[in-house]
Amino acid sequence: MNAQSPVRRTPTRAINWNRVQDETDLTVWNRLTSNFWLPEKVPLSNDIPSWATLTDYERQLTIRVFTGLTMLDTVQASVGAVSMMPDAVTPHEEAVLTNIAFMEAVHARSYSSIFSTLCSTQEIDEAFRWSEENTHLQKKADLILKHYRATDPLRRKVASCFLESFMFYSGFYLPMHWSSRAKLTNTADLIRLIIRDEAVHGYYIGYKFQRGLERVTEAERAAVKDFAFSLMFELYEVEEAYTEELYDGVGLSEDVKKFLHYNANKALMNLGYEALFPASVTDVNPAILAALSPNSDENHDFFSGSGSSYVIGKAVATEDEDWDF
C-alpha cells in the first residue's frame, strides 16, 4: 500500500447517460422518474369520515395489513434493491436501483402518513408490535432476506421479483376492496400509485433476470427455474396462512387467494416463465379488478363478446410527434 504500487488500479468511472449499453435502463429510468410522487399529494384526510364507518375489527385489520406492507417496503428499500447493486451489469442499472430503493422508502413512509391521518398513536404502536410478533409476516421476510444475503445474483432477482410482484398483494387486496365499496377512496388512490410503481420494478428486475439467464449454462438455467418455482410454492404457503389469519374474520380469505394466484402468475411472467395457477382459481372478483384499473373500459374489446360497443376512432394523419413519446 504505497504510492509506487506497480499494480494499475481500475479507474473510478463517472456514469455517462449519453453512452447507454442497455436502452431499457434509460427507458425505465425515464418511466420511474416521470412517475415520481409523494404521499403529500394525496388528500388522505378526506378519508376520516369513511374511516369512522369501519368497525373496530375492520380498522384493526386495515392497520395490520398496512403495517405488513410497510415491512416489505422497508425490506426492499433497505436490503433488496441495495443488495442487487453490486450485481448490476451496467452503471445505469445501478442508478435505476437507487431509484427503486428510494421509491420503496417513499412507499414505506406513505403508510405512516395514512396512519397519522386516521389512527391513534396507541393503535399504531400496537400494529407495529403485532408485525414484529406475527410469525407468518416474519417468515415472509426471512424467506426473502435469506436470498438477498446469499451470493447468487439470479436467485436474488427471483426473490426480489416475487416480493415486488407477488408478496404485496395479500395486502393490496384490502384497500381495493374498501375502494370497491366506496370506502377509503383517497387511501386507495395512494395505494394505486404504489401498485403502479411495483409493476415497473417487477418488470425491470424480471427483464434483468432474463438477460442474466442468457449468460449461464443450460443446466444452471434449469436449476434456477426449479429454484424459482419451489420458492413460489414456499412463499405461497406462507401467504395462504397469513391471508387466512387476517381475512377469515371478515370472510374474505377465498377472494384474497384468487388475487394471490392471479398475481403469482404475473410474477412468474415477469421472470419469463409460464403461469402456475389455472384459470379456475384466478377468477379475481371483478369488483377488485375494476378497483385496480378504474375507467379502463372493461369489455370494450371485440373478442370479449361485446363487440358492439368497441370504439373506432376517426383516422388522422400520423407523424412522429403526434404519438406522445
Partner: peptide
C-alpha cells in the same frame, strides 16, 4: 399490466384512435 390502472394497455387505444381501427383484445404481460 392492470397495475397501470386506467392506462392498462393504453397503446391499443391510441393506435385505434389514430388509425381508425378497433381494439380487438387486451391481455396482461
Amino acid at each position: 399490466n392492470r397495475n397501470f390502472g386506467e392506462y392498462f394497455a393504453h397503446a391499443g387505444k391510441i393506435i385505434a384512435a389514430k388509425c381508425g381501427v378497433p381494439v380487438l383484445y387486451r391481455f396482461e404481460l
